[in-house]
């Protein structure tokens, strides 16, 4: 667009002045309608977001006004009792623990896979691999849930036994009883597998944007491949990795079906991560919904509102970091 302005010669010929006399641009009705429609759609999106917040808050307030227990610290979920008592302490604990496990497992591995695809894999393998990772991101969560409950849970028995045997002194890996591995720990592993493609995709994109010159400079100084990555790739990609992880975290926090199928929930906060039990916001909504009356549903909506706010903050932060990155990298692109 800039090129057109530079093409016109600085001294305009005098006889050419008349045609440029100001002529008001005609605003056609079609234009006005179309622009209005486009703008209206944008506003519709904003209205939907606002409506989600407003209606969830409205129903949540209805539920909370009758709640006899402290919503934030009470551990049990009994909205249909008289008086109704319910709180999100267990759910918040379970959500945080399972997401933390998922992040701790998924982020390093995802960075590894992204590095593998962008820097280590043979060229001919890299393309198809990236494609497969793309496809994996599209596998529905219920299928992960089914696989997790029927295949992963029995598979992890051995690992659980091993962790209990050698690491039970850490308290968190102490397992009481021999119940199946329908625990927060298993949920964390399954969530890690699910968010792996998401984090990998974004991280790989960022790795591929690292200026070629930085890497070649490092290599020319005699750095090994790892030193090149540590000195040029990782510093450049740091904020990208952070925001990719936060996108993954957003997924893990809100995941419903995979948790609902794997976990055998209860309302006890327990530091023994291998024991069955615990719960997450989304899982609790899905599994309590069928038996809930209208008030019970309002209570679930209140917990959903908390989840909504948390994911909003996480995603907003991720986007904020990405946005800053864009401006920054725009300078040396």
């Amino acid at each position: 667009m800039d090129t057109t302005t530079t093409q016109s010669p600085p001294p305009p010929p005098t006889d050419r002045i008349e045609p440029t006399s100001p002529q008001k641009a005609v605003v056609r009705p079609g234009d006005r309608v179309f622009a209005g429609l486009a703008k209206g759609s944008g506003i519709t999106l904003l209205v939907i977001m606002a409506a989600i917040a407003v209606f969830l808050t409205y129903r949540a307030v209805l539920a909370l006004s009758d709640n006899e227990a402290n919503f934030l610290t009470y551990q049990d979920w009994l909205p249909q009792n008289d008086p109704p008592m319910f709180g999100i302490a267990t759910l918040a604990f379970g959500t945080v623990v399972s997401s933390v496990i998922a992040m701790a497992l998924a982020v390093p591995v995802a960075i590894g896979i992204a590095l593998f695809i962008s820097h280590y894999a043979p060229r001919r393998l890299a393309g198809p691999l990236a494609y497969i990772v793309d496809l994996l991101a599209a596998v529905p969560s219920i299928v992960y849930g089914l696989w997790g409950a029927l295949i992963l849970v029995p598979y992890l028995d051995g690992l659980n036994k091993w962790l209990d045997e050698f690491l039970s002194w850490t308290y968190i890996f102490e397992k009481s009883g021999t119940g199946p591995a329908r625990s927060l720990f298993t949920v964390g592993i399954l969530l890690a597998i699910m968010i792996l493609p998401v984090i990998t995709n974004v991280t790989r994109e960022v790795f591929l944007q690292v200026p070629r010159m930085h890497e070649e400079a490092a290599l020319a100084l005699g750095a090994t491949r790892w030193e090149t990555i540590r000195l040029s790739v990782l510093p450049f990609a740091r904020s990208g990795i952070i925001s990719a992880s936060m996108l993954g975290l957003g997924r893990a926090l809100g995941e419903t079906m995979a948790v609902a199928t794997v976990l055998s929930p209860n309302f006890i906060i327990s530091g023994h991560l291998l024991d069955p039990g615990g719960g997450t916001f989304a899982q609790n909504i899905a599994s309590k919904f069928k038996e809930a009356n209208e008030y019970g549903q309002d209570a679930l909506i209140a917990s959903g509102l908390v989840l909504f706010v948390i994911t909003l903050l996480v995603n907003g932060a991720a986007r904020y970091i990405i946005g800053r990155r864009k401006e920054y990298s725009g300078a040396n692109a």
Binding site: G42, I43, L45, L46, I48, M49, A51, I52, F55, L56, Y58, R59, L247, G250, R251, L253, G254, E255, T256, A282, I285, A286, Q297, L300, I301, G304, L307, F308, T311, L312, V314, N315, G316, A318, R319
Partner: peptide, 23 residues
């Protein structure tokens, strides 16, 4: 709009369900 489209991408599906449920 750009910001909220980005944020909306991350809405948990169950929250979207709860919104329609309440409304």
């Amino acid at each position: 709009v750009t910001f909220f489209v980005d944020v909306m991408t991350g809405i948990p599906s169950i929250v979207a369900g709860l919104f329609i449920l309440s409304l």
